[in-house]
Design a protein around this nucleic acid. Structure first.
Length: 681
DNA sequence: GGGCAGGAGGTAC
DNA sequence: TTCCAGTACCTCCTGCCC
């Protein structure tokens, strides 16, 4: 959008198409950047991907403009104040400097491509890329000369280098060779940190001391050993910390090494001219922000602009930048790394066929469950990731009260998240599980912990075992994907009934999100009959004193909510009036002649899907809330109170959901800027 | 104010 | 011809709740 409108870029529009593909990478020094940029631009132009990139670019520009505005508003007094803070912080950070360790970073050279070449010598000396037409994982150094690189689509790579040989990925092979390299690494540091299949950090302090040799000598020996064991070459960097070691390993790639002595003045000299982009954690966007807002291009300049950094960034971001300016990085060896999440995602041809999308979700659920079970993991936050046909990425999450791992349970909750997005055309779906149980059996780590979930569960003070879970997959399959597809845009198939007994845990209230959304209808003492082909259990007649909603009741709520998602539902309300008599009311909601509301007569054509949905929801909520106000004068259980408050949250969540659309131009506060601060450097 | 949750965005490989 | 990945981590924000 904006970029092609700029006069400077009108004759060469590709120059303002900011792609990572022109960024310097080892082996790409002599590449004709302009040519690469033009080809990438021309191959991308007009595609949905391109359009999305343009949107993202506009977002970044806005971010930069906002920061520039803040920057220019800083008064001399502000700057002086922040300079003092920065100086103080720099002293504090400097005090943490540890020059006693020697770190070695090993990086295999074009690992996947090298393994393929090793296994198939006919590839030697030829431009090789590992991956497919849609994406390339690694490119050989011969291919890099043409501008081909990792994370580039194969069809663009082929355009850049018509002779390019594209080899499919084979992780079995890479794992095998990776294990061979790791056996070597282990000899030098049994606790080495594997950053990926082809990278590792080794603390070689002890080896150097014990054998009386330098870091450079260890690196030389290790590289030879790796080559002997695998036939592959690697590059190494030796430095006092991991951040610098990683930078160093890139300097003499391929098959080379660089040593930065454990000496502060050497570090200062090294850092002074180092481009910020060389630092792990500073990517395309961060680099642009630092350059365009602060005019910072090298690490040294970070310190020169430290007052502005402290003024405009959050504490943790500022700390990260100042550390980079000082050449500080990780020197300790973490005892163990705890997995935080596990996920899988798949890209496919864009489709809005809900049955097809559901099948993909089934596959993902099974894959995720299998992966979790392999590692003995139980999680309670499930995140659905979607990429629309226009490359817009959405994530939708739900945190459950219980830790789960079975594919049925995953699918049940994932389905609810997915159906709330319908109708939608997707090209990618993914599932991520996080919030793992410390206990391998899925028992919450600390039931007394003061969390909202526990608060809601407090009614079950006995801590009794939850009832066996009855998979609701059939519900999901039968109801969710066969109903009128004007489905509810909110996650509403989950219910949030009162939880006076633990048996409810499984069937209900396992969604904070739904708790918010459903808070407004949950206190209604009624039975709602969904118009579903699925036979529903018979529901008992509730009374004043009947706070205990059994699982069947939960099921009926579920039916109600599913019904609310549709264009037609019927409420069958048994409400209790002040005199204690029970009245029976029925109200049918449907679209008469396909467009007229049976309740209020408003006309909305079928194409107004969201509007109709909102309208349907409105009547349902109106009805239920009306009854709620009439029948509930009794005191609430704690759980009920929580859920009542959750009600007010629904609007916030909904609002947020709307706001989250990437198409919405958002004002981004300065603090919204992100910088990765604690990687294993 | 602090913790939690959901969502977005950035980064690395 | 083909037409932009998958996994995992992190920070930050907003909104809500206690």
């Amino acid at each position: 959008m904006a970029k092609s409108e700029e006069p400077s870029s009108s004759s060469r529009p590709w120059q303002s198409y900011h792609t990572v593909f022109t960024n310097a990478k080892a082996g790409m020094e002599g590449v004709d950047k302009e040519k690469v940029q033009r080809i990438v631009y021309e191959m991308s132009k007009g595609s949905k991907y391109f359009e999305n990139e343009v949107k993202k670019e506009a977002y970044t520009k806005q971010k930069i403009e906002n920061m520039r505005g803040q920057y220019s508003k800083l008064t001399a007094q502000d700057i002086s104040h922040h300079q003092k803070m920065a100086d103080k912080r720099i002293l504090e950070l400097e005090a943490t400097r540890d020059l006693s360790r020697i770190w070695l970073h090993v990086d295999m050279d074009a690992f996947y491509a090298a393994v393929e070449t090793l296994c198939n010598p006919s590839l030697k000396g030829k431009p090789v890329a590992v991956g497919g037409m849609s994406m390339i994982s690694t490119a050989s150094y011969e291919a890099r000369k043409f501008g081909v690189r990792a994370a580039m689509p194969g069809f663009i790579a082929r355009k850049l280098c018509p002779e390019l040989l594209i080899v499919p990925v084979d992780f079995q092979k890479y794992n095998h060779y990776s294990n061979l390299t790791r056996k070597v690494f282990q000899k030098y540091d049994p606790n080495f940190l594997a950053a990926s299949l082809d990278e590792a950090y080794l603390d070689i302090t002890s080896v150097c001391k014990e054998r009386g040799i330098t870091g450079g000598e260890v690196a030389e020996e290790l590289r030879q050993s790796v080559h002997l064991e695998t036939g592959l070459t690697c590059s190494a960097g030796v430095a006092p910390n991991r951040l610098l070691a990683k930078v160093c390993s890139d300097i003499n790639k391929p098959d080379g090494q660089f040593v930065l002595p454990n000496d502060q003045s050497a570090i200062v000299t090294f850092i002074s001219s180092l481009p910020i982009r060389k630092i792990g954690g500073i990517g395309k966007v961060t680099e642009r922000i630092l350059k365009d807002v602060f005019e910072i291009a090298t690490c040294e300049e970070i310190l020169q602009k430290s007052s502005f950094i402290c003024a405009l960034f959050s504490r943790s971001s500022a700390d990260f930048f100042l550390s980079v300016g000082l050449g500080l990085g990780g020197t300790d060896t973490p005892q163990y790394k705890i997995r935080k999440s596990i996920s899988n995602e798949r890209t496919f041809s864009a489709t809005e066929d809900e049955a097809l999308l559901f099948q993909k979700l089934v596959d993902l659920s099974e894959m995720l469950s299998a992966d979790m079970q392999k590692e003995g993991l139980f999680g309670r936050t499930l995140t659905l990731k979607l990429k629309t046909a226009s490359f817009e990425v959405r994530t939708r999450a739900v945190t459950l009260l219980r830790y789960i791992s079975s594919s049925e349970e995953i699918l049940k909750h994932a389905s609810n998240l997915l159906k709330a997005e319908f109708p939608v055309s997707l090209r990618l779906m993914g599932l991520r599980m996080s919030h793992f149980s410390e206990d391998k059996n899925g028992i919450p780590p600390d039931p007394t912990q003061k969390t909202l979930s526990n608060f809601i569960l407090a009614g079950d003070a006995s801590g009794g075992k939850t009832s066996d879970y009855s998979p609701l997959v059939s519900d999901v399959c039968d109801n969710t994907f066969s109903v009128d597809m004007n489905c509810c845009p909110t996650y509403c198939a989950e219910t949030s009934c009162d939880l006076p007994d633990s048996s409810m845990e499984n069937q209900t209230s396992d969604s904070t999100y739904s708790r918010h959304i459903l808070g407004n209808i949950k206190e209604v003492n009624e039975t709602v009959v969904a118009q579903s082909s699925e036979p529903r259990p018979k529901v008992h007649e509730p009374t004043y004193t009947d706070h205990t909603i059994k699982s069947e009741k939960a099921d009926s709520y579920m039916g109600q909510l599913e019904a609310s998602s549709c264009d037609r539902w019927e409420i069958d309300i048994n409400c209790v009036d002040d005199a204690g008599s029970v009245s029976d009311q029925k109200q049918l909601f449907c679209w008469v002649d396909g467009y007229k509301c049976s309740i209020c007569g408003i006309e909305l054509p079928p194409s107004f899907i969201e509007e109709r949905q909102e309208h349907s929801d409105f009547h349902l909520a109106e009805k239920l809330q009306g009854e709620e106000s009439g029948i509930h004068h009794r005191s609430f259980m704690p759980q009920q109170r929580a859920a009542q408050k959750g009600h007010t949250g629904s609007s916030g969540r909904q609002k947020k959901k709307q706001k989250s659309s990437p198409t919405t131009s958002k004002y981004v506060p300065i603090d919204a800027f992100f910088v990765k601060t604690n990687q294993n450097f």
